[in-house]
Design a protein around this nucleic acid. Structure first.
Lengths: 213, 213
DNA sequence: TAGATTGTTAATCGATTAACAATC
DNA sequence: TAGATTGTTAATCGATTAACAATC
């Protein structure tokens, strides 16, 4: 994560990026409520962090506030949208049409943020041919050709862990740049791809640890 | 997180706990493969971290290795199981029988780790009365009485964000101690409860950030 | 002008890593 | 004994927080 960021040479930590994503949700809610101005102290309160943290996070990307006044909600929200790259549409391919894949595909929040599934692949003949909204579930053997013809930026991986790596290799071949992985498996990716792992077992097991104290 | 841990006064960071959960999966796989002994260097390689990190994480909980030899796979796996509290059965209540709740309920990995859903609640009359395995979906208004009669340690929250806080309050009243929250909402909990948030929008939006670089 | 709040620097805190004596 | 690898201490790195001059 040493690449240049929007004309800025500083390295942005993943912690900062995740908080940015939270600021986005908070600001969107404030905007809906008709709040026009917000201070770093208020944002911090809503986000459960410190105001210094808020100001520091934002300072990596520019001067969005006004001393003595705070931040204009809509203005800051729009800035955060641009920073996160949510000002355009992202195409996604889903690999694994199981119940988790189904839940993700039909989750409306993603579309509202601009993340659209345009491909769904599985290997189960029972599922192949089924329509999910306007997307037909295809056999994964068709994936490579179809993704070359209609590329996407993001691949979402909900297959069993045994096939996760080969699916990632396929994604690499067709130019997918980001992978959201739900398989409990460490994946090897080329340097020009980004990976985000979501491991629900880790979440539950860490709860279990604290409950056992 | 300042409470005593298994007779040890050191504070265990959440980073360590999450890695422990990964060691567990790695060790289980090694055991299946018939590997009997493993070094911190090999564990580190499989986990994508450093060997010093592995040794440090384990050292918080005891001396599990043998100098010159490494760790006995089964022995260490069993130790990690005890540390994580995976050596007993955890009862879970699901709030929100939507597609994400469905995916979690039917995810076999959880049962294999000892996490069992014994309650499912929703407010949709279409769903109430439906059986998921041997669990009947009930109206959330029955939850309080039923959870007092048959308590659980963990609550899993997949309701819309608007009702998340009131469900947590209910959980607190019936003695739930851990919450796995999928609603994109900051929740207030009493000090004697533990919270783990899983926010899929954060995962996607942070990918979007790096893809936009 | 007085009060409020940003943007930023310096201090602190905590997590990771390197190094190595202990020891199998 | 020689080689390997742990457990632990000290050094380093990076993230968070405190503090405050700048300024609306």
């Amino acid at each position: 994560m040493t690449r240049e960021i929007q004309g800025n040479t500083e390295k942005i930590s993943e912690f900062t990026v995740r908080r940015l994503s939270n600021y986005f949700r908070i600001l969107r809610e404030l905007e809906v409520k008709g709040v026009t101005t917000v201070s770093s102290a208020r944002l911090a309160e809503l986000g459960g962090i410190t105001s210094a943290q808020v100001r520091k996070d934002l300072s990596y990307f520019g001067n969005f506030g006004t001393r003595g006044l705070g931040y204009k909600v809509t203005e800051l929200k729009d800035a955060v949208i641009r920073i996160l790259g949510l000002n355009h549409r992202w195409g996604m391919a889903l690999f694994g049409a199981g119940s988790l894949g189904h839940a993700l595909f039909f989750h409306n929040g993603f579309r509202e943020d601009g993340f659209y599934f345009t491909h769904v692949y599985d290997i189960d003949d029972e599922k192949i041919g089924t329509m999910w909204r306007d997307v037909e579930i295809r056999h994964v053997r068709e994936a490579e050709d179809r993704l070359r013809a209609a590329p996407v930026e993001i691949g979402v991986l909900t297959t069993p862990k045994e096939s996760a790596q080969e699916v990632v290799d396929l994604m690499a071949r067709v130019g997918v740049k980001g992978v959201l992985n739900f398989a409990p498996k460490r994946l090897e990716l080329p340097d020009n791809m980004w990976l985000r792992n979501v491991n629900l077992a880790v979440a539950l097991e860490s709860l279990s640890f604290y409950l056992s104290l």
